[in-house]
C-alpha cells in the first residue's frame, strides 16, 4: 500500500513531447512506473517513447484509463492544463512547474470544487512511492520502500530528510512534495489524512517552511485526527522578515509566519519538532523505537 500513487497507477504526461517531460518519463519507465501515454495538443495520433500521444486529456483518458497526470507544461499554460485534467476526471494531478501566477492557482482551486481530483504541487519535485511509481523529477535512488510517509514544501530539503532516513534503513511508504507556492493544490492536511489511513505508513515526516499558516493548521488538525506520530521541521529560522526566500510562498509577512513561532506551536500540539535539520533521520529512528516499545501513542519531546 501507499498513498495517491502505487504500482497500479497509470500515468499520463501532459506536455509529453517536451525535453523535460521526455527525460523524466523515460526515467520513470526505467524505474517501473506505468506510463501509458501523453498529451501534446497538435501532435495527437503520433507516438513518443513508444507510447501514444493525444491532442486532449479527454481523448487520453478514453483510450488509456489513466489515473495520474504529470503536468510538464510551462508555468504560463499550466493552469489551463490543470483544469483540463480536472475536467477529464483524473484522480491525481502532479504539477512540476515553478512560476505559475498566484491568481491562476486561485481560479484553479475554485474550479476544483465539486471534483474529486487531488492536485500535488505546483513547484514540486512530485510524488514517489519507492519501487512502485514515480511521478516527478526527484532522484529515485535515494528513496527506499518502507513505512515512513514524507510530506514537504521543499524539494531538496525533502531529499536531505529522505537520505537521512534511508541511511538508517528507514524506508518510505510515499513521499509527497506539496510545493513551495503560496496557493498550492493540496495542503499538508490532505496528505496527512491519506497517511493516517494507509496501513503501510507507521509515522510521518512533515517538512514546512516560513510563510503561511498551513503547518500550524496541520498540527491543529493532527492533534485530534492523527494516531500516527509526526516528526516535523520548519525551515527558515534564520530568514529575515519581508524577504521571499526563493520559494514564492516562503515569506515572513507577519508574526505567525516565522519558523520559531510555528515550531513552538506545533510542539505544543503534539508533533515531534526537530530544531536541527540534520537530526531528522535520527529523530524518526527514536520515535519509531518508542513506538515499538509502547503500542499506544504518547507525547514525547525531542
Amino acid at each position: 500500500m501507499s498513498v495517491f500513487v502505487g504500482k497500479n497507477s497509470k500515468v499520463i504526461f501532459q506536455g509529453f513531447t517536451g525535453q523535460h517531460a521526455s527525460f523524466h518519463a523515460e526515467e520513470a519507465i526505467k524505474g517501473g512506473t506505468k506510463v501509458v501515454g501523453g498529451v501534446t495538443p497538435g501532435k495527437g495520433g503520433s507516438t513518443h517513447l513508444g507510447l501514444p500521444v493525444f491532442h486532449t486529456m479527454e481523448a487520453a483518458m478514453q483510450e488509456t484509463g489513466a489515473d495520474v497526470s504529470a503536468i510538464f507544461v510551462p508555468p504560463a499554460f499550466a493552469a489551463d492544463a490543470i483544469m483540463e485534467a480536472i475536467d477529464a476526471h483524473i484522480k491525481i494531478i502532479v504539477v512540476i512547474a515553478d512560476g505559475i501566477p498566484v491568481q491562476d492557482m486561485v481560479r484553479v482551486k475554485r474550479y476544483l470544487i465539486g471534483h474529486e481530483a487531488i492536485i500535488i504541487g505546483p513547484n514540486t519535485p512530485g510524488i514517489i512511492t519507492p519501487g512502485e511509481c514515480k511521478v516527478g523529477i526527484m532522484p529515485s535512488h535515494i528513496y527506499k520502500p518502507g513505512h515512513i510517509g514524507v510530506v514537504s514544501r521543499s524539494g531538496t530539503l525533502n531529499y536531505e530528510a529522505v537520505e537521512q532516513m534511508t541511511e538508517r534503513d528507514l524506508g518510505q511508504s510515499t513521499s509527497v512534495g506539496i510545493g513551495g507556492d503560496p496557493v498550492n493544490g493540496c495542503d499538508f492536511i490532505t496528505v496527512l489524512n491519506a497517511f493516517e489511513k494507509d496501513p503501510e505508513t507507521d509515522a510521518v515526516v512533515m517538512i514546512g517552511e516560513i510563510g503561511g499558516p498551513q503547518e500550524v493548521d496541520a498540527a491543529l488538525w493532527a492533534q485530534t485526527n492523527m494516531s500516527k506520530p509526526i516528526i516535523s521541521f520548519v525551515a527558515g529560522i534564520s530568514a529575515p522578515p519581508g524577504r521571499r526566500m526563493g520559494h514564492a510562498g516562503a515569506l515572513i509577512s507577519g508574526d505567525a509566519d516565522t519558523a520559531e513561532v510555528k515550531m513552538n506551536r506545533m510542539e505544543e500540539l503534539g508533533m515531534h519538532v526537530v530544531r536541527n535539520p540534520a537530526d531528522i533521520g535520527e529523530t524518526v529512528e527514536q520515535v519509531l523505537s518508542q513506538l515499538k516499545s509502547k503500542s499506544t501513542k504518547q507525547a514525547v519531546t525531542v
Binding site: 521543499s154 530539503l157 536531505e160 513551495g180 534564520s238 526566500m245 516562503a250
Partner: peptide, 12 residues
C-alpha cells in the same frame, strides 16, 4: 541548490 535546503543550511 533549492530554496528549502538553502534555508536549512542557513539555519544549521
Amino acid at each position: 541548490n533549492g530554496a528549502g535546503l538553502a534555508m536549512a543550511t542557513m539555519d544549521s
